[in-house]
Design a protein around this nucleic acid. Structure first.
Lengths: 238, 238
DNA sequence: CGCGGACTTGATCTGTCTCAAGTGCCGTGG
DNA sequence: CCACGGCACTTGAGACAGATCAAGTCCGCG
């Protein structure tokens, strides 16, 4: 009962590309997992950390994807961050975690106990740099949640998955080239919970984007973008 | 033309209380401005940093309040964070700032040049601890922006201004005691931009809360809360 | 082949936005 | 001292984006 999605097999491999591109401003010294703590693995959809759990360790994503989310007492869920390779979580202001963490894909993590972490300023600096990038992503997402329309949210979301378009990464924005393919790697419900919408609105927006030719897809999480500029212009950010 | 609000004189003094309580989980070693960089001052509403400015320094709030915000090309604004004493800003993933910063009140800041900052791991650790707290606040705010109703947003906002109710601060939650007074220190428009609402909706919500007796006020930014529990129950968070 | 879960689509409802007047407050000048 | 103007805020009426409720449809799997 852990295998209930029809998520593509290639998702995990391709998955890194999107989020890593977004959140890796400069893939400089830190090869993820280099200065490893203990490695741990989780199955897809496994709960890594619950809200309120003792925040006794810091995790770095080595492979796969992780979502951080919060719940309201009545069950409303907000996905706060979607993490890819190199991203960090588990740090909280107090001794308990303020968010829950779940494996979006099968995932490999480096786990650093709080004690290790506190003693190792080199490690701390590395994670610190990482957090700065995540900080900016969070700022961007607040803008999305507070001020963007459904269409802008969805197009922004898709645009973020395109490697090398936001991050100062490798591949250049590809002027008018051939269609770009991206793997969403998230269910419609997850996308909805991330973008602060309902699943129906997300679905309708995808359909509308397809109808108007901005995107194309057969399987619903393998999207082709014939013209990136056109997509960008719908994000509200330019 | 810098003096155009009818903001209360006491605002600045009392201002710290609210946000500091929220974002100071443990007022331990760091007396703000202890390990000072160069001190700088800004008048109320002065622009400290624009989006896209060179991120050459890190700032710590010594006295007063600062807002961080982002703009969309068409003018929509989202206030990302409201900072009080001890909070930190200016760190970005890349070399330019991803947000703009404005003085919410007359403000005193400690400015640390990037070079200073990079060489001083003690300083970095101190700011790092701070950022963790701000990180959690950002998470909470994402939940608010993505999943809460207008009424829940406004009550959450007011509740956050109450010193010692969220942070593990001094004053205990005050069971059924006398009315608590808080100073909002933000205009309706600022509140709207922070909560992802329009000014009219914020105004209407305040009026409705007053009508129903949850809050009381004469000047619109000096709010009394006769019964905090009642307010809390409207935040959606409990 | 038929079941179940994820997704899509349609019809309707509603919370929030938009547009448009107010109202109240404060500072200015007659 | 009071009329006046400006600005922030409030209030109302109506429009609309997105939510909700309710069927479908698609597709992988047993």
């Amino acid at each position: 009962m852990e295998l209930r999605t029809n998520r593509s097999e290639s998702g995990h491999a391709r998955y890194d590309a999107g989020w890593t591109a977004l959140l890796n401003p400069a893939p400089d010294d830190d090869h993820p997992g280099r200065a490893c703590g203990r490695q741990v693995r989780y199955k897809q959809r496994a709960l890594i950390l619950a809200e309120g759990d003792e925040a006794s360790a810091v995790y770095e994503v080595i492979e796969g994807g992780v979502i951080l989310f919060k719940l309201l007492p009545d069950g409303r869920r907000q996905i706060i961050e979607v993490l890819g390779v190199g991203d960090v979580f588990g740090l909280a202001a107090s001794s308990v975690s303020d968010v829950a963490a779940e494996a979006l894909t099968p995932v490999r993590l480096a786990r650093f106990e709080r004690s290790t972490f506190e003693g190792d300023s080199r490690l701390r600096d590395r994670l610190f740099a990482r957090l700065r990038a995540q900080f900016c992503a969070l700022h961007d997402h607040a803008l999305l949640l507070g001020r963007k329309s459904a269409q802008e949210r969805v197009t922004t979301f898709i645009a973020r998955m395109v490697p090398g378009c936001f991050g100062l990464d490798d591949t250049p924005p590809k002027p008018g080239g051939d269609p770009i393919r991206v793997d969403l790697a998230m269910s419609r419900q997850e996308i909805a919970d991330y973008l602060g919408l309902t699943i129906e609105t997300v679905s309708r927006t995808f359909s509308a984007l397809r109808r108007s030719g901005v995107i194309a897809y057969r399987k619903q999480d393998e999207v082709e973008i014939p013209n990136i500029r056109r997509l960008f212009h719908m994000t509200g950010s330019e």
